[in-house]
Design a protein around this nucleic acid. Sequence first.
DNA 1: GGATGGATTGGCT
DNA 2: GCCAATCCATCCA
Length: 211
Amino acid sequence: MSKPAMTTPLMPVWFTQPTCVVAADLIGKVLCRQLTDSDDTVKVLRMRITETEAYIGAADGSVEAHLSKRGGDTDIMYKAGGVFYAYLTYGVHLMLNLISGAKGSPESVLIRAGFLSEDSDRLLAEQSLPPDKQLTHPKQFAGPGKLSKRLQLDRTLYGMAISPESKVWIEDDGCRPPVSLRPRIGIDYAGTAKDWLLRYVWTDHLSLSKK
DNA sequence: GGATGGATTGGCT
DNA sequence: GCCAATCCATCCA
């Protein structure tokens, strides 16, 4: 008998765990976004996380490159886990990072993909369809830029604590999906670190950014 | 002040 | 597969 899962927001201190643990355990958790409509209706979007990447400190070639390329606003990566690091790439796409690990080491977790809770039934149905029929809906928020756009995130999140107060937080409702490891995306410049298996995916899920 | 380029994406050849 | 979109921090005059 599984007892009804208690849904609790993760507190900032949860993100001070080792970055690989944070990145792996975030798979299956729920990224929540509180929004206010034009008619003042408050609603909460719930996006279940299917894909993350870990960036694990100065010895990680991709982090080293990122720090030197971006400079200034990367100082936040040295903070203790529990705050947001949001930044734009290509002038278009917002990357949602969660600072993780202990203070003093530049570490973070990038949220790369998820699916809206309200779509989970439809996803289950699509799983049994042939691959060329699975693409339309599930892929919708698979990719860091698309996810951020759907949740209407912006750079004001930068430096805020990961808690309901920031209107963006993460809940644990007991979901524990199978997790697989993959190489990270878009860091070909990172030397040997480009091949490290630091991308965590919900095994065989439809809503992933890449195979 | 101006040039450069990116943890990406979608559209067109 | 190629390429433009479009912001912002950095580097170089």
